[in-house]
Design a protein around this nucleic acid. Sequence first.
DNA 1: ATTGCTATTGATAAAAGTTGCAATAAGGAG
DNA 2: CTCCTTATTGCAACTTTTATCAATAGCAAT
Lengths: 139, 139
Amino acid sequence: MSCIPQLTRTLRARGYRMTPQRLSILQALHDGGHLSPTQIYERVHQTGMTEATVYRTLEFLAGNGILSVADRGNGHLAYELSSEAHHHLICRNCGAQMAIEPAMLASAIRLMESKTGYQISAGHLTFFGLCQDCQSRSQ
Amino acid sequence: MSCIPQLTRTLRARGYRMTPQRLSILQALHDGGHLSPTQIYERVHQTGMTEATVYRTLEFLAGNGILSVADRGNGHLAYELSSEAHHHLICRNCGAQMAIEPAMLASAIRLMESKTGYQISAGHLTFFGLCQDCQSRSQ
DNA sequence: ATTGCTATTGATAAAAGTTGCAATAAGGAG
DNA sequence: CTCCTTATTGCAACTTTTATCAATAGCAAT
């Protein structure tokens, strides 16, 4: 977590504060990679933090671009450090997961930008499909 | 709702049943377009249906491809008839929404399929960005 | 160091969403 | 039309997420 001093400065420049709670959550995500709010709470609640704070902090950090939100398509969110952000491809039969390079979507996003005039920030997308194994098994 | 007999046959062929509850929910989505579980519950609860049934039915119909799940990026889901499915582009400053033609993602999806071997069904994606108005205002 | 402003947290309650199980009812078979 | 199987529902308890508000604690300024 070498980036903490920089993050702290960023927040302060925007009128926000760095707190032990925010640090704990960043640490948990640094160690855990890709976690749901409940998983994060399990990792940090021995410090006395409440669920409400976990949810609020995650929303705050994501709103400030420090975390990325990953949606698993079931309505439950997972969070990760933005520096490690990537998209997911999940097999809806066996649940196998693959990472998707953001670059693979770049041209589609450029197309959408030119057609809509929006300036798009893709965030974290989850795609669903059938992996090769499940495709051959269903033949 | 001219498609009900066809949907009923599809479900029965898979060993499932068509029920008044499922019909009410399909009707609500036909009338309402794009609704959250709570909005759907408000429209159908006078029939005596419980929240649990609403949630289970939505998941069931989506799992059978009859509904599409739209994720607004905040972890809350909205549902729509698959026949009316489209993607969304939302301005994260003013909330303005635009529909995105599924065709605009087609080539990116073909690229992902060829690189990963997965057979992808895109589902419903939500993109975030800044609309033209908000871009010019922030200059 | 101390002070003051106010962003942030914890506590609490409410809302939204999920799960297990017994009772009900869709619909195929006779 | 009646029976039977079992998919589906309602009920109730439970988990997850959000909102409110008073108390706390960053941190800029003195």
